[in-house]
Design a binder for these strands. Structure first.
Lengths: 218, 218
DNA sequence: ACAAATTTTTAGATTTGCCTAAATTTTATT
DNA sequence: AATAAAATTTAGGCAAATCTAAAAATTTGT
């Protein structure tokens, strides 16, 4: 597969919301930053190769094979994102462009060993799930931290209350978007949480926890 | 720069033995696995871009700018090789193909941080020196282990005596091509060596040391 | 030195992925 | 349901990087 073909497949995957949805030529053109006519050309090629199902004027969907390819690209992209953040000190919002390039590197062993090196992560720095080698993956959902079950881990993806005092609190406690938070325990009577963040244990009140969104798996 | 241009520059660099040597069209064609006519075309383009010095029928050399570009590609290639071996458990002879792809990834921060993550290595798994960010690098030389000065480190790149008993010895002591060996000390009277390999200290006789080639720096 | 062999370049074609402009199909509106 | 608007496809071209075949320059052999 060429680089360009892989980009198309990935975009069709994302626009199709992971599975069935028919994807329009124009939508693809916009994401690819190209013209609809170019998209038509490429779709024809992808169709001949069996990567997409296509009937003229009716939009495209990924074939079973195309979906497999898409998931493998997404897997590579997200594993590289984890690598960049965990090992190379990138912040969660700097990784996309580089991962976009790294996702095209072809070597099965590379990805298997990278996965192992990273400890088989399940989510990337944006909280999105990482497909397994065979293409399965858990759905991710967004939850307020105080609603995350004990023993679960998630990525901090947003705040409900963005008032200065709250943001200051986050800053002081070194909690930032993209951080991975593990819920160790919950105190019954006041709802306060014992969490682990960057290998450090801290306790936060229910009030704080109900203002932080995590993206968790399952 | 396109991927193909980068490949040409790198090949011209290697064929020119690192610097001045004029490189012939045919030699480039062979390395690129393409035809001399294609090379002519590309050389013309590289020349227009100021990457090479070129007079028809007279071969090419890298310009100052072209050399800079070449060194940056070599740097990336070798850093990725170190990464693959040190962090992802690749063996020294498996890394080339993958590094060949990774060397084209464009991100200054990526390479800087990779360099840091790897502890600013000076040599790659084949014993070749890694250019610094600014393009300087030490020459590497091949020496028998017993001639390596105390305090130096090198990569095991070959054996002088390849008899089965010797190879068996290497195997038993977990010494393999590509291993990094640090010379800790040398015993005056029998010439035996105290070396560090994969963080383990071992002692080897002069007889052994005089059969192992290391590639060292400076 | 000069013809033969080799190397290198030019000319013209091909493929991939893109473009513009025009034609066609679908969808939206009245 | 007919027409206007929007989306999509086709047609014809372009640039990059390659190819084959043929021409030109250089090197080699005697």
């Amino acid at each position: 597969m060429t680089l360009s073909e892989e980009d198309y497949i990935k975009i069709i995957y994302h626009l199709g919301k992971g599975e069935q949805g028919k994807v329009s030529t124009n939508a693809i053109a916009e994401k690819m930053e190209t013209k609809p006519s170019s998209v038509s050309d490429m779709i024809k090629k992808l169709s001949e190769k069996g990567l997409v199902n296509y009937k003229k004027y009716q939009g495209v969907t990924l074939s079973e094979y195309g979906l497999k390819v898409a998931l493998s690209i997404v897997r590579k992209h997200r594993l590289w994102e984890v690598f960049l953040v965990e090992k190379l000190e990138f912040s969660w919002d700097e990784v996309h462009e580089v991962a976009e390039q790294l996702e095209h590197i072809k070597s099965e062993k590379l990805i298997d060993m990278l996965d192992k090196h990273l400890g088989f992560p399940q989510i990337d720095p944006h909280g999105d799930p990482i497909p397994s080698k065979s293409g399965e993956f858990k759905k991710s959902i967004k939850r307020l931290l105080n609603e995350v079950p004990i023993g679960k881990e998630g990525i901090c993806v947003g705040v409900k209350d963005s008032s200065p005092p709250f943001l200051k609190f986050l800053d002081k406690n070194k909690i930032a978007l993209g951080d991975s938070i593990f819920v160790v325990d919950k105190e019954e009577f006041d709802g306060s949480l014992h969490i682990k963040i960057r290998d450090i244990d801290i306790r936060i009140s229910d009030q704080i926890a109900s203002n932080l969104y995590l993206r968790i798996i399952e």
